[in-house]
């Protein structure tokens, strides 16, 4: 089984983020990590490979430095990496990103393409669907359990208050949620061995993409404004005696339908 896991390099999730004048993330001063949501997709890919044999390739689009963050995935157990990197791709929106990833995935002959739920920086959660659309493959979203039998895929799809069971034919694109597994630590031996694993670099030309259709020029969406999230309002402090305060809290919870 050939498994591809789409991953993204994101700023360290604990870092303070700043935007450039054209509302792009200022990455210059930030440490980067593997998108935490993608670790679940990667873990699932590695587990499926362990159960069904085959290989796991990580596929990413990003600056040349993204290779460094792919090391973690290679150390966890991915077999190789594919890095799409080209200055023409800078500023790409979801559409263009999906176009480029699809071009790289199409030629790979993958049976299963796994994605995380969203990226920890942009947090749109739109890419997996766009990717499936570009590739003309079935798309299974919000998956919390995944079983493969032969060329069939059977998943539990997370809903609010329950789940639905869906099956599909491989190849397919699957977006997984955090409930699906607990990602392993990269083993220290794996870290040392990751140096010997291959990361293939592809550019726009190599993928047969027209420069004019890429980056900001090719994007179909434009960020026109960005506003920091308003500061959280301070909570209300009750100074009444406990018996009165308890009643006020109960009323508040009932008002907000937390309790009936």
């Amino acid at each position: 089984m050939k498994i591809a896991v789409c991953v993204k390099q994101v700023p360290d999730t604990t870092a303070r983020k700043e935007l450039t004048d054209d509302f792009r993330l200022n990455r210059a001063s930030l440490d980067s990590v593997l998108n935490p949501f993608d670790e679940y997709a990667l873990e699932e890919g590695i587990r499926q490979k362990e159960a069904h044999e085959g290989e796991v390739a990580m596929v990413t689009m990003g600056p040349a430095s993204a290779e460094e963050t792919m090391r973690k995935g290679l150390a966890m157990g991915a077999d190789r990496g594919v890095l799409i990197t080209d200055s023409a791709l800078a500023g790409s929106d979801i559409w263009v990103t999906a176009t480029a990833l699809a071009a790289a995935l199409r030629s790979g002959g993958y049976d299963l393409i796994l994605c995380g739920q969203e990226s920890a920086d942009a947090r749109t959660g739109l890419l997996p669907g766009a990717l499936a659309e570009h590739l003309g493959l079935p798309f299974l979203s919000y998956v919390q359990k995944l079983d493969i039998e032969g060329s069939q895929l059977r998943v539990r799809r997370q809903l609010s208050g329950g789940y639905e069971v869906i099956s599909a034919n491989l190849p397919a694109v699957v977006m997984v949620v955090k409930a699906i597994n607990e990602p392993r630590y990269p083993s220290l031996k794996g870290i040392m061995a990751s140096k010997r694993k291959q990361v293939t670099k592809l550019d726009a030309g190599g993928l047969g993409l027209e420069p004019a259709s890429l980056g900001i020029a090719g994007s179909r969406t434009e960020v026109v404004a960005a506003t920091p999230r308003p500061a959280k309002e301070p909570g209300r402090m009750l100074t009444e005696p406990p018996s009165e305060a308890a009643k006020l809290i109960a009323d508040f919870l009932a008002e907000n339908k937390v309790i009936a």
Partner: peptide
């Protein structure tokens, strides 16, 4: 890269 990843992994662990 390896040293940083070992540091990160040891820290998370």
């Amino acid at each position: 890269d390896e040293q940083r990843l070992i540091q990160q992994t040891a820290r998370e662990f």
